Amino acid sequence: MAAGGDHGSPDSYRSPLASRYASPEMCFVFSDRYKFRTWRQLWLWLAEAEQTLGLPITDEQIQEMKSNLENIDFKMAAEEEKRLRHDVMAHVHTFGHCCPKAAGIIHLGATSCYVGDNTDLIILRNALDLLLPKLARVISRLADFAKERASLPTLGFTHFQPAQLTTVGKRCCLWIQDLCMDLQNLKRVRDDLRFRGVKGTTGTQASFLQLFEGDDHKVEQLDKMVTEKAGFKRAFIITGQTYTRKVDIEVLSVLASLGASVHKICTDIRLLANLKEMEEPFEKQQIGSSAMPYKRNPMRSERCCSLARHLMTLVMDPLQTASVQWFERTLDDSANRRICLAEAFLTADTILNTLQNISEGLVVYPKVIERRIRQELPFMATENIIMAMVKAGGSRQDCHEKIRVLSQQAASVVKQEGGDNDLIERIQVDAYFSPIHSQLDHLLDPSSFTGRASQQVQRFLEEEVYPLLKPYESVMKVKAELCL
């Protein structure tokens, strides 16, 4: 049975990233139509530049190519590739079939990587351009969430054990800070992308030097003109047959890092959902379990974690691919890159769409948070109580021993009897502590235990987050809708 299948058929496997999760716009960027249309555009740009620099290419040939950029006979191309065992030459023939007058000058002087690699770089750039505003929107939604809850005390956790208090907004800023680093890295790697350009079979530009009869300047002009037509500021000066596969490492490393950030955020949300302090959106008709109707599973956060793990592992592909590119190139890269580049971007696209949807509907339960604080705060307040007693004339050592005994009794009630923490009640009825009984409410005010959390939130948002989001103001209103 021949390899390949009808990918629109229910009898043929289709990647869930495309069929179930990723956005239509990201799927289109990695589609065959987008790819092969870009090949034709690159052939047109090459012909236009070659004509401008004096090669015998007519206006009629150029116009014929322009008129057929979208006229792609995919069936013919597939048949040609089956016959020739070469995808680029299959599309040269297919393009030439609908451009008979231009057929002889299509791909003039070029090698397969002229269309293959340059198209990949265009796709990487455009895919990054799709991700950047999506990530900015996630940051914006979380920034709104953090600002609104900047002063809401909550129990902090280290080692997932109760620690000092923080605020809900401050905790959210930990998430935002990681995503801001990801946004900066995505922008950097996007701006650092260079075009492969017009380089020939081993990167020496020998074929173009021959076409222009040894004119170095025209060869350099050709490279520059096509690079500018493709919208790049610069091209690699040095290439082998391909652009260095280190570029793929750079791009997928940034995406993998984004995956790590999203995994951490969504894990926190899942843990908070278990504590009943916070939940992701839950639709009115949504079913959490087929057997347990009360369940409210954090399905979206779980999906993000599941896909983020996949995204983090994909960076190993370009690392290994770059390491086995012998001399000017081997074909070890080809099949692998067809999979890992598309999957990385479709996965990143999915987790950003999902995280935006989550961040637009996060639900906080202040009463649950308050109750958990009441359970733990008495123990945390013991040092403040000791200091207040010393100020009232008591002995630190005597007070410490009193607190120690009462704390152990209260802990026994919590752990052995399943009761509430009654340390404060014990202190309130103990005559030894009568000098500070009137101060206990103040000493137990949760806001006095959150330090500068709310001020940190305000400063972080104003100095770091809002300036970073400013270039994306025009796209901030787009909502994230999930079908599944």
Rank of each mutant, 00 (worst) to 15 (best):
V475Q: 10
L423K: 11
T239G: 06
D144I: 11
S359I: 12
H217V: 11
V324S: 01
V247L: 08
V251R: 09
F28T: 10
L128D: 06
M26G: 09
Q63H: 14
M389L: 15
P467M: 04
R190N: 02
G418I: 08
V364Y: 13
I122N: 08
K224L: 09
A136T: 14
M292D: 15
S151G: 07
A103R: 06
I62P: 01
I339H: 12
M316Q: 06
G109R: 05
E283S: 15
F208I: 03
K295R: 07
A110G: 13
S301Y: 03
D332N: 02
T450Y: 01
T154W: 04
L341V: 09
V457E: 00
T202V: 04
A163V: 00
L186S: 08
H91V: 04
R309Q: 12
Y294M: 12
A78T: 12
A22I: 11
A230P: 07
V254G: 13
L252N: 05
F236V: 10
E277V: 01
N384V: 09
V29M: 15
G104P: 10
S67A: 00
R137Y: 01
T52M: 05
I57M: 02
L174H: 00
S112F: 09
H86G: 09
V363E: 10
P24K: 13
R371W: 11
G361D: 04
D87T: 01
E81D: 13
Q285W: 14
E213H: 14
L193Q: 10
G259V: 00
R188Q: 09
L165V: 04
F236E: 04
M278E: 09
Y432H: 09
R190L: 05
G231D: 12
M380K: 08
C99V: 04
A127N: 00
D129G: 01
I436F: 06
H310V: 08
K276W: 14
M181L: 05
D349M: 03
H97I: 01
G394L: 14
V115C: 08
E343M: 03
L211F: 07
P318W: 05
P153I: 00
P162E: 09
H217N: 13
P100W: 09
V92C: 12
K470W: 08
Q325I: 09
L131F: 06
K134A: 06
L69Q: 00
R137G: 13
L319D: 15
K367S: 12
S454I: 08
C399K: 05
L311K: 07
